[in-house]
Design a protein around this nucleic acid. Structure first.
Lengths: 249, 249
DNA sequence: CGCGAGCTTGATGCCGATCAATGCATGTGG
DNA sequence: CCACATGCATTGATCGGCATCAAGCTCGCG
């Protein structure tokens, strides 16, 4: 049906093909934010390759050598950390324009898995070259640091959520975050088709899938959402916001 | 009694006084890791000021303009994010050699509070100058990126903890992390004097203070710890490790 | 000495986990 | 095209871990 944020893999399959940030419609969301045309051309020179990842396939796994960062061009990913005993935790969902792989810089190995939730395409950014270029381009350096810092801040928010919110509040926060990010990308924020299962949402929110399902049902009963499987319509965004803030307490 | 990781404020009170990374006994833990003497002197030139922070006082607050990063020289801090409704969450505890303030880079404002848990001293690192210097010193740039990346990875670990561990396991993970970091700094890792209250530990671990207290008591009953208020002796580190991994399940 | 902050311990209740059954959509092979 | 399998979602019943409420304890300090 209508799946606004999907771009099907299409016929193009030539794997390493020519890429240009300067031409990319995501340049205002992605790494090149605030760069001049000339600067962007220098970035084009290092971001030379795209890679397609089939739904369900990993972009990388924990333990893989870290070589590149990845910018999501189309599609949708989750990142996931695992404990030895098999417990795992979804640490984030990434959509177009977002960077994946920052976890690898610290140890030169990835520490989490990144898995495509739908057929996706990423731009490959060789890290060594990015480092070098960012020594020359102040704006790039600045923006790269901001991206890392914002990731840290985002995770603070998740910690707050996991540490002190109740199930319904967590789901509300999750939905608001998702719709805001879609809105930024020019999609209607009232209607979302989720790319992830209840179980994946649960893993991200520290809940079991049944609890996620019940929270969806509750929000539907309260007239806040309209839930039809993965198709979610937000009827009362203000109510979601109130839940997140905790006016209910 | 013995409080290994404390350095009392002492008589020195001259606020902005001369500092030298190249002379600092923390240089192998802190920002200058892996830098040559010459490079360190350049770093000395920008890290010109130390600041003392009294126990209970904030180093900065959420909303403050972001100007500098801070390296803990002596003492102990917590960082904390707050929601509008007053809920808050401790996002980390920082000890000697660790960097505070990375959250501010993204928006040029701090997004969390940093509070001293004991009388402390920090080295002030003006961010603009650090950025500039790291354009010249590859090693500094590299190390700075690693620090940010590791912070992201650390937070992934906390998310795993908050999302999927039970109270006792969380406490075990917390204690192991703490003792490891103390060990790195040359302190006996079997005996710790906690710098934070049960409530602060609870906030970090997503638990109430009573639950933290009960978990301590349980671990004592099981012969894993010896708990005397804030004085903790680890009798069976392997048991703690087993808890974290989940061999009990 | 007495106060107060922080810690411990007990009793009770609730939220979310767990277990289990059913429903729904998609896809595949007969 | 239908029968069936499969993966995912919903819903109900019960259980358990942690929160909450409450009382007493410890220790440092004015």
């Amino acid at each position: 049906m209508n799946q606004p944020q999907t771009t099907p893999p299409s016929v193009i399959r030539i794997e390493p093909f020519k890429v240009a940030c300067s031409n990319c419609n995501l340049r205002e969301l992605c790494l090149p934010v605030g760069m001049s045309n000339e600067q962007m051309e220098q970035l084009d020179a290092i971001v030379a390759v795209r890679r397609t990842v089939q739904r369900g396939d990993p972009l990388f796994r924990a333990g893989d050598a870290f070589v590149s960062l990845y910018a999501v061009r189309t599609g949708f990913f989750k990142t996931r950390v695992s404990a030895e005993d098999g417990r795992d935790q979804v640490t984030g969902f990434q959509m177009a324009g977002e960077l994946i792989g920052l976890d690898g810089i610290g140890t030169e190995r990835h520490t989490c898995d990144a898995v495509a939730l739908e057929d996706s395409q990423v731009c490959v950014i060789p890290y060594m070259q990015l480092e070098e270029l960012s020594r020359q381009l102040t704006d790039l350096q600045r923006h790269f640091h901001r991206i890392m810092s914002r990731e840290i801040v985002r995770e603070h928010g998740v910690m707050l959520l996991l540490g002190s919110m109740r199930a319904e509040e967590r789901l509300a926060a999750f939905l608001l975050n998702l719709t805001q990010r879609l809105h930024t990308r020019g999609f209607a924020s009232k209607s979302v088709v989720l790319r992830m299962t209840r179980e994946e949402i649960g893993s991200y929110l520290g809940l079991k899938l049944e609890t996620v399902s019940r929270a969806f049902s509750k929000l539907q009963d309260d007239g806040v959402l309209l839930v039809k499987q993965r198709q979610i319509d937000v009827l009362d965004a203000a109510a979601l916001q109130r839940l997140v803030n905790g006016a209910a307490c």
